[in-house]
């Protein structure tokens, strides 16, 4: 083939497959008998965990305080970008709970999780049921553009959670700006936010690469409760006070939308700016924080 692309892609690309104005209309209709949605999200199981486990952690253990909730749009797709911390991160669940509790129009949040969860038995069953979605760009695009949902992404990724305690609140690199590209292609808003408290809730004092290889986990941290308390130690968080601040959104449609996604320099610039704003606000919140446990 002269062009070097598979002829199948050309065959598929021959015209606009799904006209943009019809993309929502053609989506699957809601079937009232179903309790799961197409991503595997279960309103039953999520509701149960929300009323019990997440409620406990949000209100009594972490005593979360939320600022700037009005920056989360009441409708339309939006990409929430946050710093990431904690060996088994509680921040995603707390952010989702914050939106459900504090926002005037509570919306479901989809949490992007790295693909490894699909390989672990048990875990692979639970994560989709509470709104976890594999961190694939096509998934993020469909959620933002076709379904117009809220999506949470942690650009630091695993590098954020395997950070040691001494490096707390120092943001890692934000990758290649894939999250900015995703928001631009979907012409969605990008809402940066920062979370204080997750680092102290489960601090990792050291990593043990040998044990990580032996157990096959993604990393093997030494925390105050793991591995001493065994697998339960992964769930034993320290009662740090959580503060979540939502920052002012960036409207990708204003920046140029889909065409802007091709501009690598612009993508990098926006990614760095987002990182800088989150870091700045983290420092601000830390300076104002008088105590780790009481705020």
């Amino acid at each position: 083939m002269a062009r070097g692309r598979s002829p199948l892609v050309d065959l598929a690309d021959s015209k606009e497959l799904v006209p943009a104005e019809r993309r929502s209309e053609l989506m699957s209709p809601i079937e009232p008998e179903r309790t799961l949605n197409d991503w595997g999200r279960s309103e039953r199981i999520e509701g149960l965990m929300d009323r019990t486990l997440f409620e406990f952690f949000y209100r009594y253990w972490f005593r979360a305080e939320v600022e700037g909730i009005e920056n989360v749009p009441a409708q339309g797709g939006a990409l929430l970008v946050s710093n990431h911390a904690g060996a088994l991160p509680p921040d995603a669940a707390m952010i989702a709970k914050a939106i459900r509790e504090e926002h005037p129009r509570p919306r479901d949040l989809y949490l992007t999780v790295e693909h490894f969860f699909k390989g672990y038995p048990g875990f692979s069953m639970l994560v989709p049921k509470i709104g976890g979605v594999a961190a694939h760009p096509a998934n993020v695009h469909r959620l933002l553009y076709d379904e117009e949902q809220l999506v949470l992404v942690f650009p630091e990724g695993r590098k954020g959670t395997e950070k040691l305690y001494k490096d707390r609140y120092r943001l890692r690199r934000f990758g290649r700006g894939g999250f900015v590209e995703a928001a631009m292609r979907a012409e969605a808003k990008l809402v940066p936010l920062c979370v204080v408290g997750a680092e102290e809730a489960m601090p990792a004092f050291a990593q043990v690469p040998l044990l990580q290889k032996l157990t096959g986990l993604i990393y093997f941290p030494i925390t105050p409760t793991f591995p001493w308390l065994g697998p339960l130690g992964m769930m034993a968080y320290l009662p740090a006070k959580f503060k979540i601040r939502f920052l002012e959104p960036i409207d990708m449609a204003e920046l140029g939308g889909r065409e802007a996604a091709q501009d690598k320099a612009l993508v990098q610039t926006v990614a760095q700016e987002v990182r800088a704003r989150i870091q700045e606000n983290l420092h601000d919140m830390l300076a104002k924080r008088k105590s780790v446990w009481f705020g």
């Binding site: 598929a12 594999a134 694939h136 469909r142």
Partner: peptide
């Protein structure tokens, strides 16, 4: 496979 997208579109190889 494990790292596939959740929904395949026709243009995806």
């Amino acid at each position: 496979e494990q790292d596939d997208p959740a929904f395949f579109r026709e243009t995806m190889l």
